[in-house]
Design a protein around this nucleic acid. Sequence first.
DNA 1: TAGTGGTCTAGACCACCGA
DNA 2: CGGTGGTCTAGACCACTAG
Lengths: 238, 238
Amino acid sequence: MRENKYFSIYQEWAEKIKAGELKPGEILPSENEMAEKYQTSRETIRKALNLLSQNGFIQKIKGKGSIVLDINKMSLPFSGIISFKEVTASLGIDVKTIVYEFGLIKPDLFLQKQLQTSAKEEIWKVVRARKLNNERVILDKDYFIKKYVPLLTKEICERSIYEYLEGELNLKISFAKKEILVEECTAEDRKYLDLKDFTHIVVVKNFVYLEDATLFQYTESRHRLDKFRFVDFARRGL
Amino acid sequence: MRENKYFSIYQEWAEKIKAGELKPGEILPSENEMAEKYQTSRETIRKALNLLSQNGFIQKIKGKGSIVLDINKMSLPFSGIISFKEVTASLGIDVKTIVYEFGLIKPDLFLQKQLQTSAKEEIWKVVRARKLNNERVILDKDYFIKKYVPLLTKEICERSIYEYLEGELNLKISFAKKEILVEECTAEDRKYLDLKDFTHIVVVKNFVYLEDATLFQYTESRHRLDKFRFVDFARRGL
DNA sequence: TAGTGGTCTAGACCACCGA
DNA sequence: CGGTGGTCTAGACCACTAG
């Protein structure tokens, strides 16, 4: 995929740690050794190791070395911007997706604010429920600005929209802002989800930006209380 | 504080952006210009700019430059490991802390698992409620391993434990794993919080590690549903 | 003291963007 | 085309850890 030297070194060691070839507590070869081994400079090795550190694979300790962390305890840094399909696939869960709404709309005032766009802009609206173990527990409401996503079909929505955007449309997602809070259930929630007698619902609002810092998607992911879980790995300072 | 060249350059520009001296959409001086201005190498400038990028202040675009993002829309990357006091102080909210429990305990099985420690280990237990606008809406249950925190007093708990740990004890917090989920309210929640008729509560579990990757604290922060909000800024890929 | 990671330098070549 | 950021190099000095 990306063929940077430092990135492939990062991947190689990330794989080794994930596969358990290196146990938690073990120390990696020193930066000088690795620079020698890969026939590269130490700064390049350091970029790879910094990635491992940022993603919770290792801890670098001055004067000692880089020690492997317990990624099971870290529970994978799945905090980032990953799509629903990526999460469930990596956990091996069987999921069904039901598309309830699909089409082009003009944004109302709320959407104009969220997407920072005008009333004339055309927007794709997609409403989907996610079924785990035969229960509809997550409601995803996606809004894409048509300017950046010219074509979308119901079939794509039933699979993974992100695979399509990044794979076929070659859109480059750059960063996202997430906001998590709890709201009272709406009539729509009750209509499209198997809510039992829960009165509230966890809402994850997601603003997704492209490489040139333009906002192109707003998503509301509404999770039944008992099925919500969010994990975050963070380094202090920087 | 830290007197790295790249870190102080990072701080300088972060301040400028926070203060609004640079408006969203403006572009920063090029890396070469800055290297010239600060009489340093371009790699050092790049380290500073990468920090700005990772923390949501700017977006770097190949061939164009570094453009300022709207940090209000980003809502500050307060996703990291910050203490309650830091958050509220930065938002200018008035908060009172009530200490309900304070003392040394031996860990039960649950705590032994969470803190990865033996039954003989001594643990500081602190239970505090946070009062916003005269309502107790957050219950913080902190557990510190005494080995790393020899002394703790009720007075410190009423202020900020983290100020004490980092300032006076000079403990270096390195990283943390956060887990967010929703549970049913317990009798303890009802006893120490003004819960109204909420049946569930947002639980933030926090595992905090020191520089040498040893776990030294486990915290459960229990938020009343209507008062919970979590913001996260994440870059895709890396 | 020898080895480690942390910072920094002064170059280099490349892919990308705008005029 | 010139300027931008992205990658990479081969050094250097430092602070820290361990034996």
